[in-house]
């Protein structure tokens, strides 16, 4: 197919697909006309059953926690896949990090950028920790908080240098943390199985609604996901940067 034929065909049939879908979707309940039982059951159940005011966290880590375990491992797999694809090839070697733009002096980091970085790093770190720890009380949780944790370290790179980032985040430590995060969730969910109860049963004490240590497994699962997501994203950032800054083909001297 040449370009114009492909484009014509694509847009013609995409319009048909969109039209048919829109026609079909008109048969759905209209906005605000909620019909399903799920929401009502969870909202009326999450405080008495799970001692948490956060219905979303109760769904993701308890009622439908098995899905979240799967999602967590999707992230784990994706990180492993990226690291596999970005690994150093035999025809490649590592060099000292340097600016590839030849004939240009590396500008010194301005103090304004440095100050912004110094300000943002602890703020992002703190906010990330707070989101993870309070995931079962307020909106947020392990996935969101974990991304923020990784972002905090990204500020280090943005406001200073690649070498500073690697000093902060050694690869081995990140590997450990990522695996620990993933396995803590899985092993925590397996614990009831060892005690001859159903897998994923929330058997820790549920505590007082609204306190930090409540809702049983939820804070632990949030923390483990936070650690896994944070470490995973840092591994990804490190791998991407390494590919651009450190790894060179043997031929490009």
């Amino acid at each position: 197919m040449n370009d114009s034929a492909r484009r014509t065909l694509f847009f013609f049939f995409a319009a048909i697909l969109a039209g048919a879908l829109v026609a079909a979707l008109r048969h759905l309940p209209s906005f605000g006309d909620y019909q399903g039982p799920y929401g009502d059951v969870i909202l009326s159940g999450c405080i008495p059953q799970r001692h948490t005011p956060q219905g979303v966290a109760a769904v993701t880590f308890d009622y439908r926690g098995f899905d979240t375990l799967g999602e967590e491992f999707i992230l784990f797999t994706a990180v492993a896949g990226v690291l596999l694809l970005l690994r150093q090839q035999q025809c490649e070697r590592q060099e000292k990090p340097r600016d590839c733009e030849l004939g240009r002096a590396i500008p010194a980091t301005s103090s304004a950028v440095l100050a912004a970085g110094l300000l943002m790093f602890p703020a992002a770190l703190l906010l990330g920790c707070s989101l993870v720890l309070h995931g079962h009380l307020t909106p947020g949780g392990g996935f969101q908080g974990g991304v923020l944790l990784a972002t905090a370290f990204y500020f280090v790179y943005l406001s200073s240098d690649y070498r500073d980032l690697t000093r902060f985040t050694p690869d081995h430590l990140l590997d450990y943390l990522e695996v620990t995060g993933a396995t803590t969730f899985a092993l925590g969910a397996t614990l009831p199985l060892v005690l001859n109860r159903p897998f994923m049963l929330n058997l820790l004490p549920l505590g007082k609604t609204g306190s930090l240590f409540s809702a049983g497994f939820l804070p632990l699962f949030n923390c483990s996901v936070g650690v896994e997501v944070g470490a995973g994203f840092l591994l990804l950032i490190a791998a991407f940067l390494k590919q651009v800054i450190v790894i060179r083909r043997e031929s490009d001297q």
């Binding site: 065909l9 049939f13 995409a14 048909i16 697909l17 048919a20 079909a24």
Partner: peptide, 17 residues
């Protein structure tokens, strides 16, 4: 992708009508 859209459009159109 173009072939996919063609196939999907035909199948969804038939289903909707």
């Amino acid at each position: 992708v173009t072939w996919f859209v063609i196939g999907a459009a035909v199948m969804v159109l038939v289903a909707a009508t």
